[in-house]
């Protein structure tokens, strides 16, 4: 199925409030995508998985994108069907100050670690996730480093996070200061 057909079938099923905003311009958006309302995400994904017209059996990739200008964080789901060989890309727009969306680990269990990574780096809370801990960074890390306004701390457990430039340190290539 083409993304446009998937979009229209889903919109007929769930209504234009739940599935909207199709971007089908192949030249501009190399993967055509559309938005899903956060409240309808699990229902839409269940439909994509179980309906034989879609039979999406693989969550390829789950990413988060921070848009401070829009005050939004988008979670992007790349879905793939091994049986029908078609791809569907969903985006969910979440408010930046409190990004919360239902977990998809009940639909595709691979979402478990994907969502942990997204929580780790962007601080998106996946409600109903069985084990929402940091995946890559240390457990005691503060902040979410892939947010655009992340500021690096001065040290981590006493290890400084900066290193002086040796050219400045030893005055290489500069005239010696007159005493």
């Amino acid at each position: 199925m083409l993304p446009k057909e998937v979009f229209e079938a889903l919109q007929a099923e769930h209504g234009p409030d739940a599935v909207f905003d199709l971007h089908d311009d192949a030249a501009k958006d190399r993967d055509p995508w559309f938005q899903v309302a956060p409240a309808a995400l699990v229902a839409v994904c269940e439909k994509l998985k179980t309906d034989p017209r879609f039979s999406i059996d693989y969550l390829e990739c789950l990413t988060g994108v921070d848009y401070p200008a829009k005050a939004q964080i988008h979670v992007v789901y790349h879905l793939w069907s091994y049986s029908l060989l078609h791809r569907v890309v969903l985006k969910v727009a979440l408010p930046r100050d409190e990004p919360k969306v239902a977990t998809l680990s009940t639909v595709w269990s691979v979402a478990n670690w994907h969502e942990r990574e997204c929580f780790d780096l962007l601080g998106v809370h996946f409600e109903g996730h069985p084990d929402l801990r940091r995946l890559l960074l240390p457990d005691d890390w503060e902040g979410y480093p892939l947010r655009k306004d992340y500021a690096e701390k001065a040290d981590y457990h006493g290890i400084p996070t900066t290193r002086p430039n040796p050219l400045d340190l030893f005055q290489i290539g500069k005239a010696p200061a007159k005493a």
Binding site: L136, P160, T162, R163
Partner: peptide, 11 residues
């Protein structure tokens, strides 16, 4: 990078 130690001589 936010996660990389700036030299092992720091520790």
């Amino acid at each position: 990078a936010y996660s990389v130690c700036k030299g092992v001589d720091q520790i």
